[in-house]
Nucleic acid binder design. Structure first.
Lengths: 220, 220
DNA sequence: TATTATTTCGAACAGCTGTTCGAATTTGTC
DNA sequence: GACAAATTCGAACAGCTGTTCGAAATAATA
């Protein structure tokens, strides 16, 4: 006569989605299993049954959100094969921000990465190889092209390229943090065109920055 | 016959410094009073005696580190009164990074801010007025000058200025996060000249970005 | 030295944490 | 419908959390 799991489509899936929101909001350590289960309308022991651990749940969340992210917003999102470096650069930033700010239901993908950046939990290293490294290498290729274009006379300086990459990612991740903070204090959600506008402005800013780095001498 | 507090210069001060390190490392919520007291060689009840709360300790840490920061690395660090906007901009970024990456003993000041950015604890709002807002307004003035210089024909667009500010701060905070992560995985500490080099590269990048934003039309 | 206030300590507290376990329930297969 | 496997549940667990409290120790004052 008590709660029958009829109205749902799998406790497992509900747990992953609830956990994604909570983990993205509080980080791994501060998030509690009980809060997750409450949001998922499941008992606390369900986590251990389906995922063995709180950590196992965390990994599952990462895997789930990563699969969703690369499927819905791949790095070359919305552009063709023969696109210019600028276009690919813009597409990369757009998809990055849409992954973290969009209202698609697992919109917490980017914020998970942001949380891990601020407070690495140890689980990160397991998924870093499958999530962060490919992203970083993809961006590296674009930046190298941009630098080479700006200064064809010599090979891009690896140090400068790395710095430019970090600056771009830093701007994007800061947007995720700032938005999360602002929305908690009662700011409206950004809709899709606004996110794209924001992405394009960051693109413009970063292109200017990369040019400034590329055209300068190696050392001051 | 037991531990006599002779060898120290005040439990209170030791607690604040130990707490600074731990809070900067784990954030407010994940840091534990017991770990702090262990590092400070004090009993757990000392926190409640001197600071009433864990939260009170946190506020004391902020106040302490803020006072240290503005004294040792003010925003106009190392430049004279009649400096150009570029020089003031560079000085701002240098002091920001030195506050968070330097090896001065409360080097955790910047990381505290970074932690609060990633996971606002509620205490932040109390200190935001005294720490973040002045910093933001100072930076705002510089960026406005830079934009006006680039495009004297019209007043700086407030939206663009805000975005440029966020981008600059985002790059700097990301450096703090990235460094903390890299150092945990066994990377060497940056020494002072390296930090200054890094600051100057970020300065160059950001100047290029600001110029790109300033010279572009308001809307695409 | 006697007396008072300040500081420190360890033990104990209630509450929350992740996890385990057996019973109850649902689902799948014949 | 009968049986077995998979799933869900609530209760209970040991461990850690921040905090409290009275006693012990120190410092200050006379």
């Amino acid at each position: 006569m008590r709660a029958r799991p009829v109205w749902d489509e799998g406790t497992k899936k509900r747990l992953i989605e609830a956990a994604g929101e909570i983990f993205a909001l509080h980080g791994f350590r501060a998030a509690t299993v009980r809060e997750i289960c409450k949001r998922a309308n499941a008992s606390v022991s369900a986590v251990n049954y389906h995922f063995r651990d709180k950590e196992g749940l965390y990994e599952a969340v990462f895997e789930y959100s990563h699969r969703w992210a690369v499927e819905k917003y791949p790095h070359d999102w919305g552009i063709g094969a023969g696109a210019t470096p600028e276009e690919r650069f813009r597409a990369f930033i757009r998809s990055f921000l849409l992954r973290g700010l969009g209202d698609g239901f697992p919109a917490w993908h980017g914020r998970l990465l942001a949380q891990e950046t601020a407070n690495p939990s140890g689980v990160l290293s397991k998924v870093a190889e499958t999530i962060i490294r490919p992203m970083d290498e993809y961006l590296d290729g674009i930046v190298r092209e941009l630098v080479r274009r700006e200064n064809p006379s010599r090979d891009p300086d690896g140090h400068s390229v790395q710095l430019s990459r970090m600056n771009v990612i830093g701007q994007c991740i800061f947007q995720l943090h700032a938005r999360q903070l602002l929305e908690l204090t009662g700011l409206e959600h950004l809709d899709r065109p606004q996110i794209i506008d924001l992405a394009d402005e960051i693109t413009r800013f970063s292109l200017g920055g990369i040019r400034a780095i590329a055209t300068a001498g190696r050392s001051e």
